[in-house]
Design a protein around this nucleic acid. Structure first.
Lengths: 118, 118
DNA sequence: TATGGTACTAACAAAATAGTACGTATGAAT
DNA sequence: ATTCATACGTACTATTTTGTTAGTACCATA
């Protein structure tokens, strides 16, 4: 899905920090442009359809949305719920693991809101 | 220092989320491969020289270290203290703003340590 | 038969981030 | 005169991330 050069310095570094440092591991799951926003919306609204996420994540391309949803699913932070209907209906929700980010997300949001508008 | 295309979608998106969302703002300051580790070491050890940071941040290149230190300095998260000596001695420490990340860093570390080794 | 809405996929291209290799200044010690 | 340590700077390249465009499948409805 996302091809990485196995033995690039970049990749080696990422793996090292992921495996040897809590913060590194955490950041590897929620870093990047969109993931944390996805988690945040799901935290507030419980369950959202693909299209609903797309509307909330202003500026995101479909490719990015799918990509990030897949990564989050692989990392067991969200569940994908398919309703066998036409037109298709797919919903996303946080797993328990995903929910366990709550505190961190809230803190990050608070910190940001406070320091953003100073 | 870091040339960004002003009107790339990427840049526009980053700015949008930085300005309109606490989490987006927070992540813009501490996201990426190294920043949060730098902050974390400075949190634990108060004041560190350039070379001390370099030794702790396993795998980092000098270019990246300088780059990230500069960005952190620009964002007012760290202070750069120059001792006019030869050979040079430069120390880095957290500003008050930088220190205010303490809770977030601790939470992220805890979360990571817990879920890393499951 | 044509159109529409939803949730995608895949090929490609642009942009951004990260890494490599080498160079600089200073004065102290050899 | 040469070497050394420290904290950088710069040009270049590789890698990764992000965005663009143009599709697909499904069945329901007009």
């Amino acid at each position: 899905m996302n091809i990485r050069k196995e033995n690039s310095t970049n990749n080696i570094n990422e793996i090292y920090w992921k495996e040897n440092c809590g913060i590194g591991f955490t950041l590897s799951l929620i870093g990047g442009r969109w993931k944390i926003n996805i988690l945040s919306y799901l935290l507030n609204e419980e369950k959202l359809r693909y299209s609903e996420l797309k509307n909330r994540l202003i500026g995101i391309s479909e490719r990015m949305l799918i990509l990030k949803l897949k990564e989050l699913e692989q990392d067991k932070l969200i569940n994908r719920i398919v309703h066998p209907e036409v037109p298709p209906k797919v919903e996303y929700e946080l797993t328990e693991l995903g929910q366990s980010f709550r505190e961190i997300l809230i803190l990050m949001d608070k910190w940001g809101e406070k320091n953003l508008k100073k």
